[in-house]
Amino acid sequence: MLFSAAAPPGGRRRNYLNESRQDPNPPQRTRRWIAKDRDNLTVISEFFLLGFQGSQYLRNVLFFQFLILFGATICGNLLIIVLVSTSKILHTPMYFFISQLSLSDILLTTNITPKMLHILLNNGGAITFTGCLTQFYFFGFTLNFVCFLLPAMSYDRYVAVCNPLRYISIMRSVFCIQLVALCWMMGFVGSLILTVPSSQFHYCGANIDHLYCDIVPLLKLACSNAFIVQIELYVIGSPFIFSQILIVVVFYTCIVLAVLRISTSTGRQKAFSTCSSHLIVVFIFYWTIVIVYVFPIKGQTSTISKVVSLLYTVFTPLMNPIIYSLRNKDIKKAVQQTLRKH
């Protein structure tokens, strides 16, 4: 009465239930019956991440590309954190928020990419049940944190542009620390809400057709009734994401209206330049999140889903320091001052 923990890609897996041999992909009727007869079902202790199934040459090319991107992401975000910590001209609320975004990008990248590189190199890879849920938890933790941080950064830009005379009194250091701490706490709680129910599921299979452990591929393997998690994901999660987007849109609408009232073109250009980088980051992040979790592309294959997921797990953490560095005079100045010192 045992489900095999993992199987090699393309291989067959044997499921034994009541000493009868079942098909590796049991029909829906059998899956429902298995979910009811939990006493005869052994919990799966290991999953197998399939990753990209293709030629060894293609996977080797992807491996070296992702390895370079991983190194560049870590170095770029560490550079932002070090500069904000050591350079006095960057000791402002905006750069404090940017350093926290870089910290979350490092956490996300180190949680996802090393295992992904192992999967590419070995045409798949096993991960323990506990390891899978741990990866899923920290993945959700960082995503939820960013969902709360981006509106906070929008509020910072709103106060700077629309109420500049009161900016220092409103965006005090204590207030900014409390705001970031609240974002981290909400990320912790939000991820916990999905991780705990997922750990209680019984799973009918062990092969996860994805690059890492995420809620959508896990739900596809669940034999148990996943209605509660689906409610949390679609009924609660979707309004939550759109509410964050709405907050950002409201703040930036006010910013645009305020900038248009500036009489000089130089003043308008300076005001827009402080917000354009943040808008690019917001658009890339929320666009990919909505496509994957809220409105999946119709007829979306597993390969398309994997490629889209790479946008916010690999490319967005890399793009954030590039966008803020290339479009920000203060960071360029801080880099120059640091190079002169050494």
Rank of each mutant, 00 (worst) to 15 (best):
L2H: 13
C275N: 14
L192V: 07
N77K: 02
S4E: 12
C254T: 07
E46Y: 03
I34E: 06
I297R: 07
F97Y: 06
L90R: 13
L2A: 12
Q178V: 09
R157D: 01
L150P: 11
H342V: 15
C183K: 02
N123P: 14
L150Y: 10
P317V: 01
F97P: 01
W184G: 08
I323F: 10
Y16N: 15
I106K: 04
K341A: 13
T338C: 13
G76F: 00
F315M: 15
Q28L: 09
V161K: 07
Q53K: 11
I280C: 09
F240H: 06
D214E: 06
I177V: 08
F175W: 14
F52A: 03
L233P: 01
L69T: 07
P164N: 02
C223A: 08
I255S: 05
S4L: 11
G125T: 11
C223W: 00
F66E: 02
P8R: 14
A222K: 00
T92V: 06
N144L: 04
G71P: 04
M94G: 10
A6D: 12
F3A: 10
A222I: 00
L58S: 11
V159A: 13
G237W: 01
V161H: 03
I331L: 14
S20I: 12
Q300A: 10
R38P: 03
I68P: 01
C176Y: 02
V307K: 05
Q100P: 03
A226Q: 00
T288N: 15
P164G: 04
D156G: 09
M319R: 04
G54L: 03
A72K: 04
S199R: 08
T134W: 13
M186G: 02
D39C: 08
N60E: 09
G51H: 02
F47N: 03
F70G: 05
R14V: 12
I231H: 04
V308E: 03
Q269W: 13
F96W: 15
V235C: 06
C147E: 08
Y57V: 09
I44G: 09
I208Y: 00
I255M: 04
M319E: 13
F52W: 15
T73F: 01
K333D: 15
S263A: 15
S45Q: 10
R29T: 09
I98R: 13
G267D: 03
F201R: 01
W287G: 14
I245K: 08
F129H: 07
I98T: 06
M1V: 11
I289G: 04
F295K: 07
V180N: 10
N207S: 08
F227R: 10
Q65T: 13
G140H: 12
N25F: 15
G125P: 06
I44F: 02
T253Q: 13
S276N: 10
I228Q: 05
T266G: 14
I304F: 11
G71S: 03
I74P: 02
H202Q: 11
N122E: 05
S309P: 03
P164Y: 02
T30S: 06
I177W: 09
L179T: 13
V82R: 08
